[in-house]
Design a binder for these strands. Structure first.
Lengths: 332, 332
DNA sequence: ATGAAAGCGCTAACAT
DNA sequence: ATGTTAGCGCTTTCAT
């Protein structure tokens, strides 16, 4: 059986309240008793029961983190950033991957809300996250990462500059002389996809290149998903000379597919990926990617959560700049 | 303020116990009251307070997961497997990355032990995990994943067949005619490293190739760490014709370094990595890897934890077979 | 400086 | 079938 404060108190010959004060430093206790109590605590390796503490204090020093997919270098990256920051601030992290399952997401949010955590960082599976309104009205701290629902009032979020990134990648391809630019995305109806496509459209428009709906292709956010999407798209639109891919695992699949189809990169088809990944520079050819700084995004999101916990009206919307990491696949 | 059972009871005109029974299905309650209570619950979107429930039941339906590093395709992979299984079994996961920091690991284990979780899955940073003895004696469920301390009594673990994998990779290289085989590892004094190196030695021995300590190199488990290690090793032992690398991020770094050094793979230097990663097949050349089935390892570890929770004397040691995924970097 | 005791929200044994 | 109540381990107010 685990040791409780009661037993520590008994063995130390003091009251349970005194033990509590020694542990939490909430009141001055005589040096003598302090020593004695600490000794017994050490002897039994006593650690306070968190459930009891939480129940009493209505706070858990743990944060929930709900991501829609995993692994993927971008998601993995911001998880890492969040974890680092949480650790620095002495918070724990309850981690859930919803696998793009909206119902499971709702269930999980409810569960974490039921006082298991002090707040949550969430990347919702769907554009419609209004089910959160109820919690937000109660001032339960929620911060959105990467994806957000603009209809949600009083809810901070942190994302990359998706519009700009889509614009930059497309412009770069256009500057290489491409006009028929395919785009492969993974999750429809979420802000990153929408904004990146908006950036893509804007770049085309500025160069008087007509937008063609058929150049867009939806794929699963996996290696195989990317490969299938590339095959389908290139089969339907053989005139495409460049591809812009919105997730790193798909980028890998697209490159595989191109190799199978004996399409040379970048000669036959130029390529820019989204989310820089470790092996990008040793792939043949090295792949040009948009880097969304995942680590910074994660750290920032956690800081925002802490602000939100301390101040329920905190409501910053933060967009972090991306950068185009130019290698060879774009034709440079 | 959050709604509690008390208020639900009051508003439904029943006792708090009846509400509890309706929620948990622990007793037959008349259809009429059942309906009424459910209605009120839905109206307030009531969810039981977990801390209270946990405190009462001494169980939390959440498991701790402590990994030593992140990201890395192998660790990421087993996290994913664990997460999937946990979800199937309706468990939550408290996730912590220790970043190979032993003190932080101890602190985290203590924290999770204090009744926040029903058990933990741990990949220890150090070979010496005897500090766990205390918890194990209390029958706190601990299962080790990937790495283990053989001195720990009554502690199940699940790992890949590291010895066999090291043996297989080395044998394959030997069959390609290599005798001067370098080995780059990341974490000394943990079972996977030790066993893989043992497998390597064994293969050499069987082919009457002398073991040379200088062919071993320690590097950080990152892309840059792999690159530096490769430069150092190849500089010291230019006679090396093949390399066996024990972690995927390092493998990527090693390939970069070889490219910088204008060493052709596999002609000048053959290569086998450990831990198959998504982009391995589109790297130039495609890289031959040992696949440790991370997903299976994760799922199995979670199942083992559940068994351990249900039966404190459960103590299986499970080794899962690996496979050599042959591509081009080995010279095939 | 220290202690007694109430109470956080829930479950479950017991009573009706 | 339903209700009463003790108590999980802790913090914290109020007495002393």
């Amino acid at each position: 059986m685990k040791v409780t404060m009661k037993q520590i108190a008994k063995e130390s010959g003091v009251s349970i309240a005194t033990v509590s004060h020694v542990i939490n430093g909430t009141k001055r206790i005589s040096e003598e008793k302090h020593q004695k109590i600490m000794e017994i605590i050490k002897k039994y390796n006593y650690v306070p029961n968190f459930s009891a503490k939480n129940l009493r204090q209505q706070s858990t020093k743990t944060a929930g983190l709900i991501v829609p997919s995993f692994p993927d270098s971008y998601v993995t990256g911001y998880i890492n950033g969040i974890q680092d920051r949480a650790r620095e601030l002495d918070y724990n992290l309850l981690f859930v991957n919803t696998n793009e399952d909206t119902e499971y997401e709702k269930k999980t949010v409810n569960l974490l809300h039921s006082k298991m955590v002090d707040g949550i960082i969430l990347s919702p599976t769907s554009m419609d996250a209004r089910y959160l309104d109820r919690l937000i009205e109660e001032d339960f701290p929620v911060v959105l990462i990467s994806r957000y629902d603009p209809r949600l009032k009083n809810t901070p979020w942190v994302t990359p500059e998706d519009f700009q990134a889509g614009y930059d990648a497309t412009t770069h391809l256009i500057q290489h002389g491409h006009e028929k630019i395919g785009l492969i995305y993974a999750v429809p109806n979420v802000t990153p996809t929408i904004h990146r496509i908006d950036g893509y459209k804007r770049a085309l428009e500025q160069h008087n290149i007509p937008f063609n709906e058929n150049y867009l292709e939806l794929g699963y956010a996996t290696v195989d998903g990317g490969a299938s999407a590339a095959r389908a798209l290139l089969n339907r639109q053989p005139d495409i000379t460049a591809l812009f891919i919105l997730s790193d695992l798909m980028t890998i699949g697209v490159i595989s597919a191109c190799k199978e189809l004996t399409l040379r990169i970048p000669e036959d088809i130029a390529l820019i990926g989204f989310g820089d990944f470790a092996s990008a520079k040793i792939i043949d050819p090295p792949v040009t990617n948009i880097n969304l700084p995942p680590d910074t995004i994660g750290k920032t999101a956690f800081d925002v959560l802490i602000n939100k916990i301390n101040n329920p009206s905190y409501n910053k919307h933060i967009q972090l700049p991306t950068s185009l990491i130019i290698r060879k696949s774009c034709g440079c």
